[in-house]
Design a protein around this nucleic acid. Sequence first.
RNA 1: GGCCCCUUCGUCUAUCGGCUAGGACAUGAGAUUCUCAUUCUCAAAAGAGGGGUUCGAUUCCCCUAGGGGCUACCA
Length: 485
Amino acid sequence: MSIRVRYAPSPTGLQHIGGLRTALFNYLLARSSGGTFVLRIEDTDRERFDERSLQDIYDTFQWFGIRWDEGPDVGGPFAPYIQSERVSMYREYARQLVESGYAYEAFDDAEALRESREDGKQGYEPIFRGMSEAEKQKYRDRGVPPVIRFRTPDEGATEFEDLVLGRVKRKNRDIVTDPVLLKSDGFPTYHLAVVVDDHHMEISHVLRGQEWVPTTGLHVLLYKAFGWQAPAFCHLPMVLGKDGQKLSKRHGATSVIEFRNSGYLPEAVMNYLSRLGWSYDDSREFFGQADLESLFDVEKLSKSPAVFDYRKLDWFNGSYIREKSEDELYDLVLPFLVRDGLVSDPPDDAQASTIRAAIPLIRERLRLLSDASGLLRFLLQDIREWTVDELVPKKTAVEDVPDYLARARELIQDADAVSDDVLEERFRAAAEALGIKLGNLLMPLRVAVTGSTASPPLFGAIRLLGVHRSLERVDACIALLRKEN
RNA sequence: GGCCCCUUCGUCUAUCGGCUAGGACAUGAGAUUCUCAUUCUCAAAAGAGGGGUUCGAUUCCCCUAGGGGCUACCA
């Protein structure tokens, strides 16, 4: 039997990086096994539904580079793939469970239930479980909308085989008492919808986060009540923040769109995510999408939770950036320069050629695509002011610096016409003549030209900016320092 | 509180009874270098604790501890 898996996000907010990993592992299992990957939208919570979410799901996966074989936008043999369009089905199955005695109507006051929970009361007292029809009719007559609750067994135990965890066993009385299957608004809860849909969509493997382990017993009970065969379960280790808590906002970026906007490459994110809870061997770190699609194996999934390490992601990102060609990097970096207001949209010819020429100089200095703005700002914007502190090298008298700059000024006059090596030799000789270190001659020039003590290679930067403009900046700095003195 | 799951360097992980416990990120030191970065070399860094089982346990079992998750008419 062929493998069918699904990623089933609920459109209640932006796609989470942890959800992206769940989706990735599902996708990889499908690809590595020649199976099918399904996208299903679980929008049964009308209160938390968020308009932008659906589009965010599409945008996220388009950027990430994985696509589904069946889903709301591409269709498929089990359409519709949006749960709100399948409600009649859930109602039908809920009714069926009531008829077969596995479920019953209840007329609880949702508000009262919520309040008692807030008072610290735990569990549900199944007062409607054995109530007579006549008694229930009174509620109906009063117009109280019913919910349908599952009748959890008091005796026995339920167990399932998990591909990661092994055998998981639970006493039935420890499973939440009589959970709601169909809400009073006529929509199903997750438990009903997921079981009905996974069965009808012929899902063979359920890969989801470990937070679902406690409720899997209920799902198994539901499969039994329907007389259906349950899929294989595979609970993925959770993704945590630095402090060991579930990854959340306060740990940093969590929505996929934030990673994208921060300048992460999808292949770096994919590579990093693939290592959270999954491993291949004892040494390999780099996995491209094609590698993962063929190498992924649930056997190598781990049980323990993984802490999300932004620094390692950064390292991956820098590595992948360095592998890009100059043309690719140009296209990748441009949107960030536009966003940061450094170039027009689209850039004019001068800007475009400047940036293209600068790419080789900044490539190995980028950890994030967005770092390009800081690195190229001196080329694309005027420098309004310099800090004297930066212009003056350590252990150097302020009054000496204008002389150094004046000397440097002479040496770069024909920078366009000579090589780096020649320029460097000149500066070495000049530094020696002045009796100072090469760095102390170059640093004021660097700060004058680039506005920063950290920059791309100086001579290259000068040519990119243009000798003329470079000289202007040097002159401005000389004037500034003289005034300061 | 109850239930469930988890436990190897700070972090991600390898090890499926024989280990001088391997790799990567991060960290530290050094080399290269006009700054920054890249690159390279080296270093430090782990089997939660206690019982078993076994010739032999990081690997298997139990207990304790710690961490996490769930405990909704949310998913």
